[in-house]
Structure formats: structure tokens, C-alpha cells
Amino acid sequence: MPATVEIKHLSVSYNGTNVVKDVSFEMPAGKVTAIIGPSGCGKTTLLRSINRLSELTKNCRVQGEIMVDGENVLKMDTVLLRRKVGMVFQQPNPFPKSIKENVLYGIKAAKIKTDHSDIVKSSLQKAVLWEELEHRLNESALNLSIGQQQRLCVARSLAITPEVILMDEPASALDPVSTLKLEESIQSMKGDVTLVIVTHNMQQAKRVADYTAFIYRGELIECNETEKIFANPDRSETRDYLEGKFS
């Protein structure tokens, strides 16, 4: 079941410097929301505070509210939260285990008893990986190509049926063909899960996202439907950024 993510007056600071400043917007259930902005503007920090991975960083303070499916994230059990909100990272980071073990890692960690082979198949199918890997399930995941590894990471986070999946520049390490395949799998997930994609590739945002938020220097400049933003943005900063006047 996809869930709505609502961010209300969110501020994040590292060592006293504000990285995200009073950001509020909503990511609708079952849709793809892209967060764009120049590098170092706080996109990744914002994303990591949704599943509270930001807490791993020392001296990080999060203020405000993040609601996933009406529940305040900051008051939830972190493990239960992360089972609801999966994440795919910038660099593909499969575990040094077999492909099958990688996909089933979350299931086994949560000690859920279900039909494992079913889950492996359906998750790999959604990540557009099943045809390639059907007969290689017991091989080490480290032998895969970078693009396959990244899609395996997508499949891995799909296996525990999350409500939201966060993607932190998922295509930045990939070549164009792998990027296309990844976008294909994003399309196939749409509707089953709420997707939040951080990217600095505007074309990619245009291709996959239903909604787009533009963040600059830790502040939310504009958030709207993708077509509206790209065709006719409300704010001049957005237009300048999209036209490449600064980055």
C-alpha cells in the first residue's frame, strides 16, 4: 500500500549549521516525486531524514514533522519505519552474498515466514532483472555489472513491500543504457509504492516524475506537477536553474 509523505516545517542542522530550512511539502501516494537542485543544497539530507538515516551522522538535529501515512516518523520505532520506507543509494551497495540472499535480506532480518522463492521472483521482476538473472540466483552479487547491482538494490528494497522508496541519485553511477533500465523499473513500480527521487539530472526528473520539488540552499523554492514546473515555473530562480544559468 503506497503512503503519502508529508513534510511540515522540517529543519535539519549539522553541527549547528542549517542544511535544510523550514521545508514543507507533500509527496502524494503512489506517485513519483523528484527533488531537484544544485549539489550541496540539502536534497540528500532531506531524503535521509525521511527514514532517519540522518541519525547515523554525528551532531545531526532534525526539527519539524515528517508524516508517513499519518504517523510522525520522528516518533516511530526506527526499524519499523525503515521497513515501511526503503532506500536506494547513490552507489550500488549489494552485500557480499548471493543474489538470492541479497533480495531476501530484509525478509530474514524481520523474521517473516513466507514463500521465499515467490518474493525473489516478483521483486526481481519489478526491478526488470528476472530475465537476466533467473538462472544465476546463487551467484555472488558482486559479480554483476554496476547497472545490475543498482537494480538488485531496488529489488532488495522492494522485497519487504515498503510503502515508500527513497532514491538518492540512483542513476549517477550508471551508464545511459543502465539508466534507461532503471527508469523502466521505476515506471513498473509506480502505483504500488510512493517514490521519492533525488536527482540533479533534470531530464531524468522530467522523464520519470509526476511531481517535482526544487530546493535551493536548503529552502524549498517550488513544488508542483512536473509538467507545470518545466513548462511554466512560478519562480524566477527555478526558471534560471532549469535554463542552466546556475548549478
Binding site: R83, A110, I112, T114, T161
Partner: peptide
């Protein structure tokens, strides 16, 4: 895919 955590 139904939610695996429904009957926890």
C-alpha cells in the same frame, strides 16, 4: 504484493 507486516 500484499503487505507482509499486516498480521504482526
Amino acid at each position: 504484493m500484499s503487505n507482509l507486516f499486516a498480521n504482526q
